[in-house]
Amino acid sequence: MSLIEFKDVVKTYGNKDNLQYAVNHVDFTIEKGEFVVILGQSGAGKSTVLNILGGMDQPTSGSVLINNQLISSMNDKQLSNYRATTVGFIFQFYNLLPSLTALENVALTKDIVKNAFDAKEMIASVGLLEHKDKFPSQMSGGEQQRVSIARALSKNPDIILGDEPTGALDSQTGVMVLELLRNMCKERNKTVIIVTHNADFAQCADKVIRMKNGKIKELTINDNPAPVREVEW
């Protein structure tokens, strides 16, 4: 059984007279340990798919099975629990709490899950031990994103979701972050799903889902994904 089963999911906004389909009958599956990239232009519906996978939004119809849990019919409390234990989210603009240091932002997960990894170890794993006591405003974009990744991983989630994780970074830093994510996927057997509009990402992915106007335009499986460093950006 697949880790993620997205079945005939529809997400609409607006009222009967002005119904907008953000996601329009989308189906796909994702296996454990896959590095998946969802590609599409602005308004394609990729972020909506990610939000539904992350338990931050509910589909209008359809079902979403993750790890045998039907998250599409969960209530608020159950979704909160799901987000705490199953998902680690990485945002385009990092979304670190500005009044906490790098270490404290990662250590925050200890208040969420009992078995969170040690914050110092996680910070070290992203190469930022010497910056652990800095506030987000004192760090570069790449450093902040690495902290965000450490935060996401510290909960030891089954799935890591990234919404344009390199969108606010320069290309060199973006490559570094992408490589980190790819390594996390392979070394720790995490399922990583990245949403991006950058088609170059497809070369590194195990699976590429191309979306347009709320529908899946193409789903390709990459038998030989290229290492991040070998891709021409």
Binding site: G54, M56, R83
Partner: peptide
Amino acid sequence: TMKAMGVKK
């Protein structure tokens, strides 16, 4: 962000 991380309401 806190909600996304799973911090309870």
